[in-house]
């Protein structure tokens, strides 16, 4: 098992014997079986594995979008499996950022409005929002696109808006499911570069990917197969 970034300190994320089974009528699909995993604050982790192995299911559990059928999930030392939907929403709002393969921007909102959305939902004051949206746009080099709607942006630009939106609440962890899946290689590398620069500033980064080359850039690689963790390697520095 890999060590936490800071040995001895409680890990940011601790999964203990997680089970997740989907029922499709009579059939049961065991998407995750006996998954235990520690992830330290500030880590850069890639989740790899064949299609249908349970990578997305794992990421959704980590993001509190889904609940395990058994096992415990400790986030920042707190057992979040027993939280109410309202408490889980609050944790997602403040501590977790999502980046999706298909961007999931709201089409009728401008780039700036999309980025402001998590702050709007969290009830942050407009003045504060404007300042932080400005900073986030600058960080993803899209200041001149603030007033553009998603359909006026390229795929790479859309994903950069999505990344700005995922980080504007300064979450503890950024979860990215195939963030480059809809982008060509060079654009994808630009996006990964952006995520890595955020990680260098201290944000925990967990990326699900099919792409071996991209996975190889992460310091730690977790391999999933058939719902189990079958490999956990840390790249030599």
């Amino acid at each position: 098992m890999a060590e936490s970034a800071e040995p001895g300190a409680a890990p940011l994320i601790a999964l203990r014997a997680i089970e997740r089974t989907f029922r499709l009528g009579e059939d049961k699909v065991a998407a995750l079986t006996g998954v235990s995993l520690d992830i330290g604050a500030g880590e850069y982790l890639a989740v790899v594995g064949p299609s249908g192995s349970g990578k997305s299911t794992l990421l959704n559990l980590l993001g509190l979008l889904d609940r395990p059928d058994a096992g415990h999930y400790l986030f920042e030392g707190r057992d979040v499996t027993t939280l109410s939907v309202h408490e889980q929403a609050a944790v997602r709002s403040r501590r977790i950022g999502f980046v999706f393969q298909s961007f999931h921007l709201v089409p009728r909102l401008t780039a700036a409005e999309n980025i402001a959305l998590p702050m709007v939902l969290a009830g942050i004051a407009p003045a504060d929002r404007a300042r932080r949206v400005g900073e986030a746009l600058a960080a993803v080099a899209l200041t001149d696109r603030a007033g553009h709607r998603p359909d006026q942006l390229s795929g790479g630009q859309r994903q950069r808006v999505a990344i700005a939106r995922a980080t504007v609440m300064q979450p503890a962890v950024l979860l990215a499911d195939e963030p480059t899946g809809n982008l060509d290689r060079t654009t994808g590398e630009g996006v990964i570069g952006l995520l890595e620069s955020l990680n260098r500033l201290g944000m925990t980064l967990i990326v699900v990917t099919h792409d071996a080359a991209l996975a190889a850039r992460a310091r730690r690689q977790v391999s999933v197969s058939d719902g189990r963790i079958v490999g956990d390697r840390i790249r030599a520095a």
């Binding site: 979008l65 939907v85 309202h86 999502f98 709201v106 998590p118 939902l121 609440m169």
Partner: peptide, 9 residues
Amino acid sequence: LLKALGADP
């Protein structure tokens, strides 16, 4: 998306 962004039900 709104739920993922932390919107309460």
